[in-house]
């Protein structure tokens, strides 16, 4: 082989295997899903190929509007709380020593990896009548009788914050830890107090990253499937729950697929916005 100066480490054919796998098992399923979303619902439980907009037309119903409104407002609330709590947390974290950072990251990753079913179970135990904080409040004399705080909207939002918080920290962590510590140092030297340096220097410098993280956490909590069932009431069900409900229990694959395509478009648009917001940071 002649030694060309621009030889790459990986030959061209190496890309074929991942390309084939991702096309077959990722693009093709999406293609089929798109096709099913315009297929005709067969009452026997499946679908027959055709081209009609019936499943999309069902979006226009009042019921679907309400589902979307609940889904979005619950996720927006959770995302706002998560980012508000996670941003100072990440700033403090990134200024700690390597070992402390590693330990805290292990805790965050473990919490993030926990199955939603375990988080839902843990939180409903924590909020339950027999083993939960209701007991603690009763023992402290704050309330007359131990009571349960689940299922409720409060429990659901707590759960979404629980899964969203570690995610928010991990999304914020790279930009925050790359922020030049000298900028903050300079502000302090010029006489800015701690909170002033925080809100006057750190926050504006990372505005794009914060907006990006907010959107990503929003999309992340929007995908929550088990928590609304474990911690919320049926009127709090999110779009994810309705998609599964239609596909698995109502045997209406076309409608499930149509909702899924819709959710994908919303998520893609938002993720695109988030990456734009993240990029803007450099220019700001």
């Amino acid at each position: 082989m002649s030694a060309t100066p621009v030889q790459t480490a990986a030959p061209r054919w190496l890309g074929l295997w991942p390309a084939a796998m991702l096309t077959l098992f990722f693009l093709v399923p999406f293609g089929i899903m798109l096709a099913v979303s315009v297929a005709h619902r067969d009452v026997s439980g499946f679908y027959e190929w055709s081209f009609e907009w019936d499943s999309y037309a069902r979006f226009l119903s009042a019921f679907f509007g309400k589902v979307m409104a609940v889904s979005i407002s619950v996720s927006l609330t959770a995302a706002a709380i998560c980012v508000a709590l996670a941003f100072p947390f990440t700033v403090f974290l990134s200024n700690m020593g390597h070992r402390a950072q590693t330990r805290i990251l292990v805790v965050l990753l473990s919490a993030l990896a926990l199955s939603e079913v375990i988080i839902g179970f843990s939180l409903s135990t924590l909020l339950s009548q027999t083993a939960g904080i209701g007991n603690l409040f009763h023992w402290l004399g704050l309330i007359d009788e131990p009571r349960a705080y689940t299922p409720s909207l409060f429990a659901l939002i707590t759960g979404l914050c629980y899964i969203g918080f570690p995610f928010a920290v991990l999304v914020l962590y790279p930009p925050v830890s790359r922020l030049d510590p000298e900028i903050v140092e300079a502000a302090r030297v010029m006489g800015a107090s701690g909170p002033r340096a925080f809100f006057g220097v750190i926050v504006p410098n990372l505005r794009g990253a914060i907006v990006g993280a907010f959107i990503l956490v929003f999309v992340f909590t929007l995908g929550s499937y088990l928590l609304p069932q474990l911690l919320g009431r049926s009127e709090h069900w999110t779009l994810s729950v309705h998609i599964t409900d239609q596909a698995v229990y109502q045997s209406n694959l076309p409608f499930g697929a149509a909702m899924s395509v819709f959710l994908m478009l919303v998520a893609l648009a938002l993720v695109g916005l988030a990456s734009l917001a993240g990029r803007e940071r450099g220019a700001a």
Binding site: P29, M33, G256, A257, A267
Partner: peptide
């Protein structure tokens, strides 16, 4: 993407 999309796909 929200995992339910991949799941249905």
């Amino acid at each position: 993407l929200p995992p339910v999309i991949s799941a249905l796909g």
